[in-house]
Nucleic acid binder design. Structure first.
Lengths: 106, 106
DNA sequence: AATTTGAGAAACCGAATAGTTGCATATATA
DNA sequence: TATATATGCAACTATTCGGTTTCTCAAATT
């Protein structure tokens, strides 16, 4: 059971769940109302999200509130950082080209 | 064949390929040397990466050079932006708490 | 106490996935 | 021209995945 954050966000339904519970905690039933699948299917998605710590649970009687663990999202950001560095440096290169062209115009 | 960038980066081998060809173009053979799978398996990964425009090809005789299409990576960044907003606002809230504490100390 | 409700677990199913082996084709090289 | 090399594609396979249905269990509600 290789639970990996990248695998977790690969599924569109799971990304939708993430978006739903990003700002306020929700129960599986409430989440499932937003989809055309069964509650059980949503439950499985929540399990996967929980297993890779993207989501935390809060027990309240027989209800379980799920909420996004925003800290975990930073891991994606961290992975992306190495590539951001690349596209930013390219942008700077383009910037240089543009300013050179401007100078030539003068 | 729903090719989706999130599905593309879900596989660890594909993420490794992305890292390899981020800075310099490489042929499938050269890429495959870095893994313990067959060249054909790498070829399939490259196909998936190409299908969702994460990678571009450059033909050079019988060789094909693959290189990362860095622009496409920004799509992940765009998706992440909504969550970055959340964790940054939380950080600011923490910031406020800290500055309030500081004031009280004074 | 009996019933309803919220939720997870298990068993099953079809489709997708990642890998393999084998083959076809085009370009270099001898 | 014959051979070697680089690559993609097709067929096959085992495993994983996302979904459903059925079941169990615990907490509310009557």
């Amino acid at each position: 059971m290789r639970r990996d954050i990248f695998q977790a966000i690969a599924d569109p339904t799971r990304r939708a769940i993430i978006a739903l519970i990003a700002l306020q905690a929700m129960t599986p039933n409430a989440i499932a109302e937003n989809f055309q699948t069964t509650r059980q299917a949503i439950s499985k998605h929540l399990r996967i999200l929980t297993e890779c710590d993207l989501v935390k649970q809060e027990y309240q009687g027989r209800e379980i509130y799920y909420m996004l663990e925003i800290e975990k999202m930073k891991e994606i950001d961290k992975w992306l950082a190495q590539y951001r560095k690349i596209w930013e440096s390219r942008f700077n290169q383009l910037d240089q080209v543009l300013s050179t062209l401007k100078k030539q115009k003068k």
